[in-house]
Structures are given as C-alpha cells and as structure tokens.
Nucleic acid binder design. Structure first.
Lengths: 260, 260
DNA sequence: ATCTTTCATTCGATATAGTGAATGGCATTC
DNA sequence: GAATGCCATTCACTATATCGAATGAAAGAT
C-alpha cells in the first residue's frame, strides 16, 4: 500500500524532504520491527538513494536510530525528548491533568484529555486511570478519528459545521455498532442541548464513552475531556452525574485556559 | 545564542531541510511559549522565507501546530504519536518496566531505564517511582550528558574506552560537587570491579544515583538501569543491597533482550 | 563452493528547493 | 489620524538536492 498523502504533500511543498522525513517516521512508528533502507523506500515510493540521504539526516538528528550491524532503522530517542517538551509546555495538558485525575477516581472511570486538530484526528494528551482491578487503558499520543464516538458528537455539536457537510466523513468511520446518519444527527442535537456527549456501545460494544468540550479561544472546541468505562458499570443515573461533572471540569479548564 | 550544530549539519548533509526542521522542533521544544516566524528564523540563522516553507511542511505533518490567529508556532501533536509508537516498539522499555517497578517499590527509590546513544547523551525511556510522600521525579524523554553521575561511570567502565580519551568530555560536565579526574578514574575502576556504579552527592548534592549496565549485543552497554534516592535514605548497607539488585535486574533484562 | 539475487551506497546530470529582495498587512507610536 | 516599524508572505534566479544508473558487498539458492 503506497502512502497517497506523500505524493501530494511532496508535489506542492517547497520542502518535500520534510514530507518524506515525516512519512519515514510514521512508517517506522507503525512497523513492528526495525526496517532496512530498501523496504522503506519501496513502501513509500521513494528513490533508494534519496531515502538514504533522508534517513542519514534523521539519524544525525537522533530522530531515527540505526543499528550499524544490521543496517536497520527504527525511531530514535529524539522523538521522546520532543514529546516530553511538548507535554510540559502544553497548558491544556497541565490544567486538565488534575481535573481528569479527580474525575477518574470519583467515578472509577478512565479519563483522557484530547486535542482536536481539525476534523481528521484527535490526539490524547493527558490520561488518568481510575481505581479498580480492570480498567480501560490508553496512552498519551494515541490518535482516533475525530468524528468517532462521543468526542465526534461533541465536535459536530459545538464546532459550527453544517451536519450534512460532515456526512462524507461520517460514512467512513468504523464502529462496532454504527448508528445511521439520522440517529447520529439526533444524538448530535441532544449533545448540543445537554452540553456533553454520550456513546453507549456504538463505538466499542460494551463500552460507554462520554465527552465535554473545552475551548481555547471562543468558536469551536480545541480540546475535550473524555471518560471511558465498561457500560455495565455506568447506569443512566451515573451517566447523568458523570456528564454533569465532565461539563463542570471542561468549563473549569476552559476558564483557566482563557486567563493566561 | 546561535545553534552551531545547525551550520555544520546543513553544510555536509544531502538533506539540509531535515537538519533545519529538527532544529526548529528542538527550538520550539525549548521555548516557553509559542514563537513567531521571525524569532525562529533569527534564532537559528535561517532565511525567513525558507523557515516559513519548513514550518509549513511541519505543520502539514502535524509535527508543529500553528495558531492561525496569532501566527505562533509550537510543537504539534504528531510528536506525541511518534513517541508513543517508539515506546511501544522499544523492547528494552517494555522489558525494563516491570524490573524497574519492582526495584522502585522494594527499595523506595525512583528507578529509570536509560538508553545510551553514544558518548553525548542518555535518554530516559522508562521510569518507575517508588512509594513515599516525597520522591525524586523525572519523565520519559529526559536527557542527560552521558558521562555524568553513576551512568557516566558505567559507560566509562564497561564501554571499552581508554579513560584518558574521555577526559576532554569529562572536563565539560557540570556537577554540584565535581570529582577530579583522578578520583573519577578510581571510581570507574571500582565500578568495573563491583559491576555497578554509585554517585553519592557528586552530581546533585544530597542525592545518590546508582546504575548497572544492560547489553543489547555484546560489546559496550546499550542501556542502563538507574536508581535515584535522597542520600540520607540510603546508608552504605542499603547501597550494597540496591547495587546488587540493580545488577541482577540488569542481567535479567540483558538476557531477555538477547533471546528475541 | 559458485552463482544469483538483493541490498546499501556512490556519482554525475538536471529539475527544483533555497535565497533575498520586494510586497502588502497589521499594530504600535507620535 | 498619519506614519513608522515589524512581520508574514510572494516571486524569480541560481546553487543544489534529487534522481537513476552503475558499483560493490552480502546474503540465499543451487
């Protein structure tokens, strides 16, 4: 499978080496094992010599590490250093962390703070796991399609998009139990009315996801507070209380983000 | 302060855009606040137009995020995603984690697993904090000069370097209580003899650091297991037991790394 | 052990990414 | 309210990063 995005990104850009470098980093990230030059070049449709030069530059910057014995490349320690700085400097992550921890322990759920970067993807930037022997679990850096599940309904409800325009993106989503577009639209309106979104078993069977929007500036939400739990541990009454708590937490964070 | 490494890295490379991109990422990582185009270009000695094209490419790849209102750039969520993949795929990090957690709780110390990438820097790739109200703390992705403290003595002792050749690098290190080269050399020999290194208050006053080497292939150590504690919580007897436990843990991890 | 295939790497020709001066927009100052 | 300064952005020229064939080295097959 060739990476389509690479072709177009390289073509129009004035710095195609960077699109190539990023594609290599992503490829190495998704690869189970370190890769040799040739497979990398083949997979991305790059000329091996160019690919080699890019890899060498990335190794030089410690974003990629090279096993000199096997000539295999993998992600380098530099990406960890960058991620650490990114997290330290992210005001949302710092502000959301204590709020998420509080929610996680009070409701015995897993809470994550996500960044909304457009309509494509959301990224987890903070996580807090509740007590209990079995928990749902993610890591910082996990990404999800933006319109999926409860966060998706949040984005649809509080970003000002005409619902019908989101339909093409909506159709591409993968759910365990997909709602049809009519039901989804209804749920989006409901979300708008109550201030938070709930997804009971649609995204993942047996799992309830709830989300409330956080705003950096005004306009559309820049982040969201999300709670995950096994559906059987959250009855309707608990969902109501959790939803209310999520909204309060999200408002707190929004307020704190504003005054900086 | 201009980034010297950039000048040389750009000159000899066949993919200078990548050296520039990496320098921008590092700069944004170290900056307390998001930066505009001009300050970035000035700081790195780049032509603004070039810098703009590089930034645009980085934004496109989500490695940098741009606030459209203020035109300020900061690190993007993509670096988090890369770091997550990096950690998931790192066999050392996965194998070391339980060993570190065990050591941390048994000795009430903070334990970290570090990757040794040459003689310049080491990077924390796994951390485990012990119990207790006050703990020393770091994050995954933190970097330290390679020859510093206990890990430095490990690298000097078990990598096959002539000690005298390490002297120039040694002289540049910053310690709270710097050992002179003679004392340090002696401690390196001691480290070689007992299999682990100890730094009692040299690197940071009042803090004891201990480290044992981990080997991916044979030859020089690729990683190390490190323990940190306030010196007053570790008497000599405890240091001996902890040192022994570190060596055992390091050997376990080394063995597991071999059989993959 | 020899042949074959696959890989990493080098090198010269050329399309193109980088340059720096020029433009237009925004905000702060007088 | 005008003017000044700084900033982000564009554009045409040229140094150079990219390409593709050729080389050498190392597995894998016979």
């Amino acid at each position: 499978m060739k990476d389509r995005s690479l072709d177009t990104a390289v073509k129009d850009s004035k710095a195609p080496a960077i699109a190539r470098a990023a594609a290599i980093l992503r490829l190495l990230g998704h690869s189970e094992v370190p890769m040799g030059l040739q497979p990398i070049a083949r997979e991305l449709g790059l000329v091996p010599s160019t690919c080699l030069y890019v890899l060498r530059a990335l190794v030089e910057e410690e974003l990629v590490s090279l096993d000199p014995a096997t000539k295999r490349y993998s992600l380098g320690s530099g990406v960890l250093s960058l991620a650490r700085h990114r997290l330290q400097r992210d005001p949302f992550a710092s502000l959301a962390q204590p709020v998420l921890a509080d929610l996680a322990s009070r409701f015995a759920v897993t809470c994550i703070g996500v960044e909304i970067s457009g309509l494509e993807r959301i990224t987890a930037v903070a996580v807090a796991e509740g007590p209990g022997n079995f928990r749902l679990s993610t890591e910082v850096g996990s990404r999800f399609p933006a319109l999926l599940s409860a966060t998706g309904r949040c984005i649809a409800a509080f970003g000002d998009h005409a619902l019908e325009r989101l339909r093409p993106r909506f159709e591409k989503l993968r759910w365990d139990n997909p709602p049809d577009f009519a039901l989804w639209s209804e749920q989006v309106l409901e979300t708008r009315a109550q201030g938070y979104a709930a997804d009971v078993g649609h995204y993942i069977a047996g799992v309830t996801v709830m989300a409330a929007p956080v705003y950096r500036t005004s306009e559309s939400p820049s982040h969201a507070l999300v709670a995950l739990a096994l559906s059987r541990t959250l009855d309707e009454e608990a969902r109501l209380r959790l939803g209310k708590a999520l909204v309060e937490g999200a408002q707190t964070v929004t307020r704190q983000l504003g005054n900086m």
